[in-house]
């Protein structure tokens, strides 16, 4: 975690703790997009994500006075988000509706996207929306804990150490969950390659 961001967060947290609600607004604005990505990729549902995000920030606001700064605000608020989302998913069970959001148009300019569509035959054969649907289906077949690790590592680009702090597990556990989840995703996507119309 870069130091300026941490210092800035600490100042905003201190101001919030001293009663300045506008400081917390800045934290909300700052972390909403990132937490949206985390929660959305764990729930695959926009409405659920919206409700959960509201609850997450409400809980963070209530609990911020007890935040002593042992970890960064970033880690702290991500811990709240992951735990609340995992609890929500346990209550929801396996019942879910895929509610895919629009893919941002800037994906067309993404270097990795261009490379994938240019070189990889399975990807090239599928159109973008179908690929998106398959990926989400494959993600939802993972267990909640494995999906959380995949989301944080692959999609959000967090390092293993940060994930282990957020989930309060060892780095070895994070790595082994990632390995297992990758194997599972590979199997699901290979099935898609073999039976593209199923």
């Amino acid at each position: 975690m870069d130091q300026p961001r941490r210092d800035e967060d600490q100042e905003l947290v201190a101001r919030t703790q001293s009663g300045d609600a506008s400081a917390f607004d800045q934290l909300v604005i700052k972390y909403t997009p990132r937490l949206y990505g985390l929660v959305y990729n764990m729930t695959s549902n926009h409405e659920d994500t919206n409700d959960l995000l509201q609850d997450i920030f409400a809980k963070a606001y209530k609990a911020i006075r007890g935040f002593r700064g042992k970890s960064s605000f970033y880690t702290w608020v991500h811990s709240i988000a992951v735990n609340m989302t995992l609890n929500f998913l346990k209550k929801r069970g396996r019942r879910f509706q895929l509610s895919l959001d629009d893919v941002d148009a800037s994906i067309q300019n993404d270097r990795e996207f261009m490379e994938l569509t240019a070189t990889s035959s399975p990807v090239r054969e599928a159109d973008l929306s179908e690929l998106q649907r398959r990926l989400n289906e494959a993600m939802m077949k993972l267990s909640d804990e494995h999906r959380a690790v995949v989301t944080m590592f692959h999609i959000q680009g967090m390092p293993h150490a940060e994930i282990s702090k957020i989930l309060r597990v060892s780095e070895g556990t994070v790595r082994s969950r990632l390995f297992y989840a990758n194997r599972q995703l590979q199997n699901y996507l290979d099935e898609f390659r073999k039976n593209p119309v199923s």
Binding site: Y40, N41, N50, I155, L185
Partner: peptide, 10 residues
Amino acid sequence: LLRLKRYEQP
């Protein structure tokens, strides 16, 4: 492929 999911937006 998973990194491309960053482009899924609300």
